[in-house]
Design a protein around this nucleic acid. Structure first.
Length: 294
DNA sequence: GGAAGTCAAGTCTCG
DNA sequence: CGAGACTTGACTTCC
């Protein structure tokens, strides 16, 4: 099992997600920002590699406004070499990278414009992973989307739109259960009808579920992954004590994590920690995992 | 220089 | 109907 963390390394003095205001968009500013972001990402991947962290979620802000109409800079060509360099690090080390577009990305919106813009954004994510030369195990995870007052109908809309996705997006797209609208059961139903792999998020599952036990849920989600997809992906984070249910904890809850590992014993998957202190908890989790007794 | 206001994008809940 | 959460910072402007 590879253990990873999302987007930001707090030990380094750089961010790979620097952006700027739309009104200040210029090709020069874009070029400088992307150059800095890619350089930082390289530092993060190297930092991870030195410590044996082989799983990482790349920020969606790597190339600001990449799918926005304002974009008139050929970033794909301009940074080809930099992306290849990142790919070399990933491919030569057995690392897996993934991406998670944020909440604005909705394939199943009744509004065609939103769906169209979301597709553009998904294409951008696929381009980043393609430019690095990564395999189809490097995924783009999204949620099923909004309910719009009719959950069944909205799931149908997801299916219709999934089926006609361009192949560069489809081969990387996976869906994750959310805590309010579409739980594991709905994701499995959609997966059964179109083949999209399901990412299981353990914390979201607490918010919306049909009483499935953790072990059962992990196995069900894992069964949706095919050979070329790589190991199943699982998101884990501790509940922040005293906060709104679903709020991510500041740091890894070690006792809870040990319980999680016991429930998952023997299953093969990669684990993404969604915890605020990032790489620190990832290293702690790796140590707990390596010292487990099973 | 520091503080306050604002930032591409959508949906849902709550008051 | 409008604000806030989601999540989070940090960019920009204003004083």
């Amino acid at each position: 099992m590879r253990i990873g963390y999302a987007c930001i390394n707090l030990s380094l003095d750089c961010r790979s997600s620097r952006t700027f205001r739309l009104r200040n968009f210029t090709p020069e500013r874009l070029r400088a920002t992307v150059e800095g972001n890619l350089d930082c990402l390289k530092r993060i991947l190297r930092w991870n590699l030195e410590r044996g962290i082989l799983y990482f979620r790349i920020t969606s802000d790597l190339v600001p406004f990449a799918s926005h109409p304002v974009m008139d800079y050929p970033w794909q060509k301009a940074f080809r070499g930099e992306f290849e360099g990142l790919g070399d690090i990933i491919l030569s080390s057995g690392m897996r990278v993934t991406m998670h577009p944020d909440q604005f990305i909705l394939l199943n919106s009744p509004d065609q414009r939103i769906t169209r813009d979301s597709l553009r954004e998904l294409v951008y994510h696929a381009q980043v992973l393609d430019l690095m030369g990564t395999g189809t195990d490097c995924k783009i995870q999204i949620h099923l989307g909004g309910v719009y007052g009719d959950r069944e109908r909205s799931m149908e809309r997801f299916l219709e739109r999934y089926r006609v996705l361009p192949s560069e997006v489809k081969r990387r797209l996976v869906v994750e259960n959310d805590e309010r609208s579409y739980g594991l059961a709905e994701c499995l139903e959609v997966s059964g009808r179109c083949g999209v792999p399901v990412v299981f998020d353990a914390l979201h599952h607490r918010g919306r579920n049909r009483g499935e036990e953790l072990r059962e849920a992990l196995e069900a989600a894992a069964s949706t992954w095919r050979k070329g997809d790589g190991p199943p992906m699982v998101d884990y984070s501790s509940q922040k004590a005293g906060a709104r249910p679903g709020a991510h904890a500041d740091t890894l809850d070690r006792a809870d994590f040990r319980r999680f590992l016991r429930a998952a014993r023997g299953l093969d998957f990669d684990l993404m920690l969604e915890v605020k202190d990032k790489e620190r908890s990832a290293l702690a989790a790796m140590e707990i995992y390596q010292r487990r007794s099973d």
